[in-house]
Amino acid sequence: MIKTVLINELIKAMHKKRTYISFVLLFFLVPLIVMAIGSGSGYLEKQIYGQLKDSFVVFGSLTNGYLSSYLIIAILAGQMPFLATIVASEIVSGEYAKGTFRMYLSRPVSRIKVLSSKLIIVVLYTIVMMFFFVFYTLGVSCAFLGIGDLAVFHRGLLFLSDGDIIWRFFLAFTISSGVMLSISCLCFMLSTFFKNSVTPIIVTISAVFIGSAISFIPLEIFERINPFLFTGYIDLFLAAFHDPVPWDLILKATFVCLVWSSIFITTSFYHFTKKEILS
């Protein structure tokens, strides 16, 4: 029975225009940024690595598809929470608002199965969106700018060889997806409470904003709180390009994100199964 409910949710999601906003946006934005990086590579290298030339002789260009991907993902990852909320905010609240729950829930189907199917769609959407973000960026960047060694800042300057990079992008995708899933679950939970899709977006982004502020402001109390917030790990994907990779930190982040997601999901189910559909 969950299969049939899931098929319904998939069909509904595929027919809504908002499902494709993120993909269309990234489809056009990423090549523009890649082309800009390509045409301004000299300036970029000077800004990032200019001081190295005092100590090193550099042959060739450090700008390649991997560096381009790394930069784009690092810059845009902070904006991905906005895109992660697009589907999650509307998937439950939209049905409240339009009144379709009156007919849908007066059928022989349990509310747990209905909400489970919607949650699966939110999870799938988030993962697919992040996959597209990371690997489309990687694909376009490498197609335009080629491949080579990747130079990143970690305890000075770290050069990652060509064969040591792709798995790191997979790791970065996994880490960032985990954090984005927590954000999506928060938005999903709020969607079960409100009858409009704007409020879940605003509250979620506000939470991310506050969490990010806690991450960046160097106060002792914030430094104590930050490790327990999923918002503190939004940029943890950069650790995938460190050497050695901080697996303990990644595991801790995974645990924190899992706990928060569980809280959000449990709250969603508890509220939804008790909620009276009055309009």
């Binding site: 049939t4 509904k12 027919h15 339009k98 009144g99 379709t100 007919m103 059928r107 022989p108």
Partner: peptide
């Protein structure tokens, strides 16, 4: 209240699956 972005047949297919 129906899913306005779907046609009538697709709307009814959604309810068919539930029963």
């Amino acid at each position: 209240a129906f899913y306005n972005y779907l046609n009538a047949r697709k709307n009814l297919q959604i309810f068919c699956r539930l029963t």
